[in-house]
Write a protein that binds this DNA or RNA. Structure first.
Lengths: 199, 199, 199, 199
DNA sequence: CATGAATGAGCCTTCATTCAT
DNA sequence: GATGAATGAAGGCTCATTCAT
């Protein structure tokens, strides 16, 4: 008498969806301000729902974390994809970095909290790492083909450095500070044309 | 209610000092392995003393944290001072970075835990930031004077990038990974002589 | 606000009845395996209906409990009625005891769970106690009339002893163990003819 | 640096012992009145200590349960041992049964709660079962040797029947009711002399 | 009527901190 | 001064019950 698994299950109730949305938004905000050890009670309250509702949607703290995280990551990946068409490969790379910093800046702290709280061996970590690395890899390959980038730089190098730079910066001025830092780093890796680098 | 006057307070009992020492060592180890949310009971047990004793030495969790942190920072500063005599200023800088990575590697996780747990506006944060920045500033100044370093690089840039790079890396291979990353960064900032950089 | 008059309320929808049936069956099974603290959500799921439906049928946890209990009791009473025609009164008694043990054995745990969960002063307790006592009383009376049974034995004695023996036994071998125990008890109360008793 | 395990550890603090005592007493009382699902919070309050203290003494619900249970069992075993000297073996047996009922009566409900709450496969169950069975076995053996007891009766039969009879009875009149029931049972098993049995 | 999401009271458990020994 | 027991606030989680769809 079980419903066939493949059967497109009835669309979820409107309030279910609305609450899920609220919870994710609230969680992002709360994690951003209180860090990864924020209380779930607090998240529920911020979302304006009961604690039981939170648990129904995300049966473990990890589950909520993961859902929030996944959202953020997807934005960053989408960003990279949008830039693959860019003519100048180095410029594309730099743009992606800048755009990313801007993105991260808008949700100051959120990413930091997540990056630190997430278990390095969890599925979500692997997912995000792979997604982002893949996104950068394509931009990077084009820059190397054009002979404009040190050959020994890997996508991981870029990703980790960028994230690292974001992690140590906080507060107002974040975007400018990190952008300058990142440019400093990129300058050292690239050469030619429109690069802002130089001494 | 002030204690008499300026009278140098009686030298503490030997076991008092020994306990303090044990506590700091144990705390560093426990925080390293269990992260910043390790329990104080656990620290006390690791140190082989009662929880009451821990509290006598460090009346609050924060106080213990700060004491441990301060120790680590001091090591890093001492490292920089030792390198001020080095002939080649760029080499000195690179050496400091390498040595620091090595130092951090030996206490893997410790720094991360601390960086996370410490309140950005706390006294200890200011202290450590100032100490380290000062230490680097002197090394950096010499490199600039020798014309071997981009003029627009600040000590903060160096410090924060280094720390950021350490934060995103964990586990085995830490030291090599971060060293490569840091070298990549330094290459981009410097020019001339013994630099490992190039394309 | 009373519903019209004495008008026989419309016969319930077929699915309503089917759901009620399913719920009772599922509940008996779930209580049997999980004990009296099983969750209602679990019962609903086992019955293949929503929790809301369960509540429509049994507006409180107690109500469900009672309905399940009542069913079990009725089976035991029916058993006794079927044996009233039996020629040998002592044999009839013994048969009822054996049959009861068999019945209880088939739903191992169920009775225990119920016995535990039911409030001794509740209506259902009175009901079941009265029903069963009455059932035994008739069998017992005939045995006494035939001079085959100690005069000072009451129906309650029999009932409670039987239940007690069932409560302390669990797991495989239940039926044989309890049957032997019960026979031991009956032997002591009866005399004459086909009695299995003796020394 | 670990303290040698065999070393007679310093006598526990007075308040530690006092609290442990209070907790056990309170727990027995609370379990008796509220059954095995009573809240630990309630037990702590009844004992007049904080919930944390309860947890320090009994880190799990099971642990508390076990400690309470073990106490009760030990009393029953001690009872049996005291009766081994009795001249008439059947009388000794009957006395033990009576005494036990009296004992159980004084803590009405306690045993029931325990018997039902305890996991049949737990260590404490085995312990109590073995202890009690052993105690009865010795009394029973003497009665059989004297030819005053059915040979096919085991200590388990006696124990389980007794417990079963206690489980189904509650409230005032408990002691008299159960005693009558138990005598009825014993009468059937024994013969000769001072036995109260007969028809 | 059926459904299943929402709610929140209430229990469990941990741990920083205090305090008696 | 050292010790470790006591405390209780606070967060985690479950589940009976209500209510929107």
């Amino acid at each position: 008498m079980e419903r066939k698994t493949e059967q497109p299950r009835r669309r979820p109730r409107a309030d279910y969806l609305r609450n899920r949305e609220r919870l994710l938004t609230a969680a992002a905000e709360v994690f951003r301000t209180h860090g990864g050890q924020a209380t779930l009670e607090g998240v529920a309250k911020a979302a304006g729902v009961g604690i039981g509702t939170l648990y129904r949607h995300f049966p473990t703290r990890e589950a909520l974390f993961e859902a929030v995280y996944r959202r953020e990551i997807n934005e960053m990946v989408a960003l990279a994809e949008r830039l693959e068409g860019e003519a100048d490969p180095v410029a594309a790379l730099r743009q992606w970095v800048h755009a990313n910093i801007r993105l991260i800046a808008t949700k100051q702290g959120m990413l930091t909290a997540l990056a630190l709280a997430v278990d390095k061996s969890s599925e979500i970590y692997t997912y995000s790492y792979t997604s982002l690395t893949g996104a950068i890899a394509r931009l990077l390959a084009r820059a190397k083909e054009a002979g404009r980038m040190r050959e020994d730089v890997t996508p991981e190098d870029l990703l980790l450095t960028l994230i690292g730079m974001c992690l140590v910066r906080t507060g107002p001025g974040f975007e400018d500070d990190v952008t300058r830092l990142a440019d400093l780093f990129l300058d050292g890796l690239t050469k030619g044309q429109g690069d802002s680098g130089g001494m």
